[in-house]
Design a protein around this nucleic acid. Structure first.
Lengths: 215, 215
DNA sequence: TGTACATCAGTGAACGCGCGTTCACTGATGTAC
DNA sequence: TGTACATCAGTGAACGCGCGTTCACTGATGTAC
């Protein structure tokens, strides 16, 4: 409290920070520019110097989320295809679990529709690309079937996204067994769930399938 | 307009109908009891005779959604395990595409959190059970691996749910190719995406994997 | 180094809005005798 | 069949709220000469 100064000096950053905090604890619906301003000890219109409107602020938060997710995905070790694919899925689901409300905003659909914020769309695409590249790489190395990269990527992303959403909202009965559950479902996608799929034993995950994952 | 009568006679049904229509076209956030009442030519408090509050109305809509989904899933032909599994996935994704806003409400998470509306939770569980039973059945017939039913179910549900959400919101680049895309990803889950998974030719879907699904 | 001035980052007041919900009420309906 | 009365389904007015956003403004800062 050194400066009750006229010029705040740090408003945009502080506002973003507080908005993110609010998002985390109360969800996107709880974010209001007026409330934010009040908490920052600043008049509401002051925020309009830095954010053209509420939606833009939300979009910026979502962009930050995608950037963080992209960074994490990029950090995954790409040595062996299978490990990379599994690990990328684990990282993805972990992110969603750590930031459920941010994740919901990023993929909310209704709140930030596609096309309204080009930068946001680009940020989302970047995250997607990491996964796609990993798939493409694994396929090129012969680890995956010659199915189109787009198809395999769609399957992988749908799987981790669906798992994230369902467990975040508690729709999956007995989904305590993270990250075993994630690894389990990813293994199913890789190895197949049909009974005469090959039993690769290069991974321990296959054994874990045998023990019941609660329910 | 036969009766501008004091007693409406049909208020609860009409209100639900209109609320559903609003949900479909504008999303859950657009539903307000006051607006509903106005459109129905009735005072706002009148609705409180029939809905204890706004949330309950939303919950009822979601319950209706789950019931409809459950019915559709139950209608799937269970003759052969593989066909049943694929078909159930197709029906699921089709439902989501036909009713995106209703689907979002059902699985929104933040709007209708689990535990707040027991009937809603039950309705959701009913839909889940159909899928689970189909999986359990397929496993018992030896079509699926001996992995826990809960794990396979989680994988299948995550896959269709994720695919639904992503395509509804346009996050999957070039997801025009429905329902080929759905069938493709489901086949991957069944047969595996690893290169030395067996090439069952009992289904034509395996061939479809070879042609690019846009992107 | 000092001053004039443009620019930037705030301010308070106000517009206009719709919301959920409660209250005390009144008109219509259904039922028991 | 007629009447008294309980119950049900509406009403209008009001409470209290917070919201996004615009407006004309003022105080602070930075820059050119």
């Amino acid at each position: 409290m050194t400066k009750p100064a006229y010029h705040h000096g740090d408003l945009p950053i502080q506002a973003q920070r507080l908005a993110l905090e609010t998002l985390r604890t109360q969800g996107d619906a709880a974010i209001s520019l007026r409330a934010l301003a009040k908490q920052l000890g600043v008049s509401a219109p002051a925020l309009y110097r830095h954010f053209s409107d509420r939606d833009t602020l939300l979009a910026e938060l979502a962009i930050g989320g995608f950037d963080a997710l992209t960074d994490r995905l990029r950090a995954v070790d790409q040595q062996t295809p299978r490990k990379a694919l599994i690990e990328i899925g684990l990282v993805y689901v972990t992110f969603a679990h750590e930031e459920p409300n941010l994740y919901r905003l990023m993929f909310g659909g209704r709140v930030l529709p596609l096309g309204a914020h080009p930068q946001l769309d680009a940020a989302g695409k970047s995250a997607f690309k990491v996964l796609e590249n990993t798939v493409a790489n694994a396929r090129q190395l012969g680890y995956l079937k010659p199915s189109p990269v787009s198809l395999i990527t769609a399957a992988a992303w749908s799987l981790v996204h669906g798992l994230s959403q369902l467990t975040i909202d508690g729709h999956l009965p007995g989904a305590k067994a993270e990250p075993m559950l994630t690894e389990g479902v990813l293994s199913l996608l890789l190895d197949g769930s049909r009974s005469d799929s090959p039993q690769h034993s290069e991974q321990s995950s296959q054994q874990q399938l045998q023990q019941d994952v609660t329910l």
